[in-house]
Simulated scan of single mutants.
Amino acid sequence: MKLSAEQLEWTVQGRRLLDNVSLEVEPREMFGLVGPNGSGKTTLLRLLAGLRKPRRGAVMVDDRAMSGMRRRDIARHVALVEQQADTTDRVTARQVVSLGRTPFLLPLRPWSSDDDAVVERALGDVDMRHLADRLWHTLSGGERQRIHIARALAQQPKILLLDEPTNHLDIRHQLSILQLVRQLPVTVVIALHDLNQAMNCDRIGVMDKGRLIDVGPPGQVLTSTRLRHTFGVHADLIEDPLDGSHIMRFRNVV
């Protein structure tokens, strides 16, 4: 499913957080969003998810304006994993994941064994079946993050939006979550701080001061000039002798 944005603007208290942002993400593409803190990545993801209405511009799902879609219909197509989402309710990890099935429940279509199977599969995908009956407040930050991802997977979305999903995760689960996301047969937009992780996306978009300033394959976009001007760092490209892949080693601009 294709996701596109046309000339999006978002303003808070006179401050423009997004300025004329347009992009098009192709079906099953993995599109990375990178940029300094405060560059607008989170705001853009929330507009793409339909949680906010842009001050100007439009979000399109397969050329259908999201503004004309019901919230339930949006949730059946688009899932968002935010950086921070918490609750004080006394709920288990499995109950949180089960919330992902809410858009599909109707008076004539109550909870079924099929929903149970979807939830169990989502828990397994993020390696959390063994903690499924633990209360939410007893989970670590990394465990909660994996449960949030499982809740999104339980929605069975065609478009998956993730806001820095590897935050709070140990390196093993960072790699496993990114591999899982990469293998899903869905359109993915993922905001990342780690530029080496962004190198594995099909394309990336660079955000800076609320604008989308560059889009393209990672190797063409993350040039030494871009890294210096936008991120304030120098980078050395290092080739892995085992598989020929490339990673970047960063140094501060003096």
Score class of each variant (00 low, 15 high):
residue 63 D to G: 08
residue 240 D to K: 00
residue 163 D to A: 07
residue 56 R to P: 03
residue 102 T to E: 06
residue 155 Q to A: 12
residue 143 E to R: 01
residue 203 R to G: 11
residue 173 H to E: 09
residue 229 H to L: 12
residue 92 T to G: 01
residue 140 S to F: 09
residue 156 Q to I: 07
residue 132 A to L: 09
residue 154 A to M: 07
residue 120 E to S: 12
residue 178 L to S: 00
residue 84 Q to K: 14
residue 40 G to K: 05
residue 123 L to S: 00
residue 35 G to Y: 01
residue 74 I to D: 12
residue 197 Q to K: 08
residue 36 P to E: 12
residue 99 L to K: 03
residue 200 N to S: 13
residue 202 D to P: 08
residue 55 R to N: 14
residue 193 H to G: 02
residue 166 T to K: 09
residue 144 R to M: 13
residue 61 V to K: 01
residue 169 L to M: 07
residue 108 L to S: 13
residue 157 P to M: 09
residue 134 R to D: 04
residue 221 V to A: 09
residue 152 A to S: 09
residue 110 P to F: 08
residue 86 D to E: 15
residue 87 T to H: 09
residue 18 L to A: 01
residue 123 L to E: 05
residue 141 G to K: 02
residue 42 T to K: 04
residue 238 I to L: 08
residue 213 I to H: 10
residue 183 Q to D: 15
residue 68 G to C: 11
residue 253 V to N: 05
residue 168 H to R: 06
residue 39 S to I: 07
residue 92 T to S: 11
residue 123 L to N: 01
residue 5 A to C: 08
residue 23 L to E: 07
residue 16 R to W: 05
residue 134 R to G: 02
residue 156 Q to S: 12
residue 119 V to H: 00
residue 197 Q to V: 05
residue 113 S to F: 06
residue 141 G to R: 04
residue 184 L to M: 10
residue 118 V to W: 11
residue 239 E to P: 03
residue 132 A to K: 11
residue 168 H to Q: 07
residue 160 L to I: 05
residue 195 L to P: 02
residue 51 L to S: 05
residue 226 R to V: 14
residue 153 L to N: 07
residue 30 M to T: 12
residue 129 R to K: 11
residue 166 T to S: 02
residue 27 P to S: 07
residue 31 F to M: 00
residue 77 H to A: 04
residue 136 W to E: 04
residue 236 D to W: 12
residue 253 V to R: 12
residue 9 E to K: 15
residue 127 D to E: 15
residue 171 I to N: 06
